[in-house]
Simulated scan of single mutants.
Amino acid sequence: MAQVQPSVQPKLVVTRFGFNRFAEQLNGRAAMVGFAALLAIEYITGQNPLAWMGLGIN
């Protein structure tokens, strides 16, 4: 006996809140940008990031 398929597909709402794939990808990309910026600051100033912010030994 063949099953009848529905004629209309439900529209699923894709949420962008909470723990989901989009949030994890965005967080990972932001972390990579921040790490690259940290390396650039260290290269340009010649100081480590803590010393650059005034929290470490120069």
Rank of each mutant, 00 (worst) to 15 (best):
M1W: 03
A2D: 03
A2K: 01
A2T: 08
A2V: 10
Q3E: 15
Q3G: 13
V4Y: 07
Q5T: 11
Q5G: 03
Q5I: 10
Q5P: 04
Q5D: 11
P6T: 03
P6M: 00
P6L: 04
P6V: 06
S7H: 07
S7C: 04
S7I: 07
S7R: 10
V8Q: 10
V8K: 07
V8N: 06
V8D: 09
Q9I: 07
Q9M: 11
P10L: 03
P10I: 02
P10Q: 04
K11M: 08
K11L: 10
K11S: 13
K11N: 11
K11R: 14
K11G: 02
L12S: 10
L12F: 15
L12E: 11
V13W: 06
V13M: 07
V13N: 10
V13I: 14
V14W: 04
V14Y: 02
T15W: 05
T15I: 07
R16V: 10
R16F: 12
R16P: 00
F17S: 10
F17G: 01
F17T: 12
F17R: 12
G18E: 06
G18M: 04
G18Q: 05
F19I: 12
F19S: 15
F19Y: 14
F19W: 12
F19D: 15
N20R: 01
N20E: 09
R21S: 12
R21V: 09
R21E: 15
R21N: 12
F22I: 09
A23G: 08
A23I: 00
A23Q: 12
A23L: 05
E24Y: 10
Q25F: 06
Q25P: 05
Q25D: 09
N27H: 13
G28Y: 07
G28L: 07
R29D: 06
A30V: 11
A30E: 15
A31S: 13
A31Q: 15
M32A: 15
M32Q: 15
V33E: 11
G34S: 11
F35W: 11
F35G: 06
F35M: 13
F35I: 02
F35H: 13
F35R: 13
A36F: 15
A36T: 02
A36P: 00
A37L: 15
A37V: 13
L38A: 15
L38Q: 13
L38F: 07
L38G: 14
L38Y: 06
L38C: 14
L39S: 08
L39P: 06
L39R: 14
A40H: 00
A40G: 02
A40T: 10
A40Q: 06
I41W: 00
I41K: 00
I41D: 00
E42C: 07
Y43L: 14
I44E: 05
T45V: 03
T45Q: 02
T45G: 04
N48T: 03
N48D: 13
L50R: 03
L50N: 04
A51R: 05
A51Q: 01
A51G: 01
A51T: 03
A51N: 00
A51C: 04
W52S: 02
W52Y: 07
W52V: 02
W52P: 02
M53V: 01
M53L: 09
M53N: 03
G54T: 01
G54D: 00
L55C: 03
L55K: 04
G56C: 00
G56M: 00
I57T: 12
N58W: 02
N58K: 10
N58A: 11
